[in-house]
């Protein structure tokens, strides 16, 4: 039982990071109807920036600057490459973001080097007991930070003028334009928020094991999460991210006992299996809006 709770807890920790990444995907999708395959690069860039700044300004300062850097990167990419493509098919824009991801990651990998870079977080792999269950401190930190970020995002979308503008623009761009909302600013802000969220997620993914050149693959696990939750549902992204995290953690804990024929590291690809199953049953995810088909 303790073993089960322990893996659920660590799954929630990892899942919180996926939820942050998934939120970024969904925010960009809601604003521009594009899935940004550039999120892995933003995540990696944020984490690497933190690992370089941590010696200068301490961990908290480095995280703030790193996240700001990732957000700026998102903003820059939107301005330079995505904005000229407004009105072109979404598939084309998605492939462009794939190109951005590849190019950016090579640059970032140059800064990582061949060895693992430590991010200098205060948690390491230490554990604390929560109700008798040993939980890694970094997972608690991830869960709390994610909860805080989600709360802030919720308040922002619900009560601020900009948040209202973003909701309006995602609902109907032309009407939003007619009401005096700068849709361009909404696009830019969406990419910045998504970049920042990816940066935060990157920091927490890098706690514990550090940053290496393979870390970007983690960011793609947010894709099963958004498919699970529905591409255009913020709540779905959070639920999807946590579910994917827990599934992955449970599979890694129990698969070697119950289904060893699936091979080592099956947990790494288990999110994609979940995604395929969900899509066969509910093509628009758990909370996604069913598309109305018109000719």
């Amino acid at each position: 039982m303790i073993e089960l709770l322990r893996s659920v807890a660590s799954g929630l920790g990892a899942g919180s990071a996926y939820a942050l990444l998934a939120l970024g995907f969904v925010i960009i999708y809601k604003a521009t109807r594009v899935i940004s395959f550039a999120q892995p690069a933003f995540m990696l860039a944020g984490a690497v920036l933190v690992s370089y700044l941590v010696g200068l300004v301490g961990f908290a300062g480095a995280v703030l600057l790193g996240v700001a850097g990732a957000a700026l990167l998102g903003l820059g990419v939107e301005r330079a490459v995505v904005r000229p493509m407004v009105g072109r098919p979404v598939f084309v824009v998605a492939i462009i973001t794939l190109g951005i991801d590849i190019a950016l990651r090579v640059v970032v990998n140059g800064f990582i080097g061949r060895d693992v870079r430590q991010i200098g977080d205060p948690w390491g792999l230490q554990r604390v007991e929560v109700l008798g269950v040993p939980v890694q401190q970094r997972h608690i930190a991830t869960i709390l930070t994610t909860a805080a970020v989600i709360a802030v995002l919720f308040l922002f979308f619900k009560y601020s003028r900009l948040g209202l503008a973003m909701r309006a623009a995602s609902f109907d761009q032309e009407t939003a334009l007619a009401q005096g909302i700068s849709v361009g600013a909404v696009f830019a802000l969406s990419w910045a928020i998504a970049g920042g969220l990816a940066g935060v997620a990157g920091v927490f993914v890098a706690t514990g094991a550090g940053i290496d050149q393979q870390m970007w693959i983690v960011a793609l696990k947010a894709l099963p999460a958004i498919i699970l939750g529905g591409l255009d549902s913020l709540g779905g992204a959070v639920v999807g991210g946590l579910t994917i995290g827990v599934v992955e953690s449970l599979v890694s804990a129990y698969q070697s006992d119950f289904a060893p024929w699936l091979g080592q590291n099956f947990s790494v690809v288990s999110p994609y299996v979940v995604m395929l199953l969900i899509l066969l049953v509910r093509p628009y995810g758990l909370f996604g809006t069913r598309e109305v088909e018109r000719v």
Binding site: V34, I35, V90, F91, A94, L220, L223, P224, I227, L231, L262, G263, Q264, N265, F266, V268, V269, Y272, V273, M275, L276, L279, L280, P283, E291
Partner: peptide, 25 residues
Amino acid sequence: RLRGLYLAIVTLGLVFLGEHVFKEW
């Protein structure tokens, strides 16, 4: 059943699953 980018993501998952199978088998 799927359109557009949903399909792109699913086929992306296929690559990861395939890579896993090929590495294990």
